[in-house]
Amino acid sequence: MVDYSMFDILGPVMIGPSSSHTAGAARIGKMAHKFAGDDIKSVDFYLHGSFAKTYRGHGTDKALLAGVLGFGESDDRLREAFEIAAQRGVAYSFQEKDLGDLMHPNSVKIVIRRTDDSEVVLIGSSIGGGNINIVHLNGIDLTISGEHPTIIVRHNTSKGIISGMTNILMACNLDVLYMSFHKKKNRDDEGVMVIEVSDVVSDEALRAIRTFPGIVDVYLI
């Protein structure tokens, strides 16, 4: 991410104590919430590197959980994440885990089980100043910074997806800043497209994408 806004630098306005360990953690959690929604049964956090070593004193655990529950980094309820999870009947656990040498030191793997027993698996890194990168989603390595409005498209075929998407984006007058394609290893039939755009994405655009042949799911970040 090189196109930082001034509010990424002087900001975020946040609940302390650590931008990388508290605010960044809340943002990663909140990103997971975007994919998992509200109907969740349980969530397991696997903390890597510096996250694993120092999470307790920074409230990283509370921040991650608060994010998964849908709260932002300047939300006072961040402090009461454990209590709110208990009230909502969401089970949670925190474990230390080495996610590999190449992983950013402030990283976490989040495994969410929804009430319908489906799973969301996501790995996010807090890269400093509260900025984050999602580097893995449901078996696929990718990069989502969440800096701009981002459309995440899951598809089950590669045929015609790229031209289909660009046509829709063009028709909806959306300016594409960045587009990337990611496939599950050795599989052609399962992929994710990450499309960063400069403008607010209309419901109409989302509907057009959702109904396109081969599209499994669409998320707006």
Binding site: L10, G11, M14, P17, S19, T22, A23, G128, G129
Partner: peptide, 9 residues
């Protein structure tokens, strides 16, 4: 509540 500038630390 604070403003990270550039970080909270």
């Amino acid at each position: 509540r604070i403003v990270a500038s550039p970080t909270a630390g």
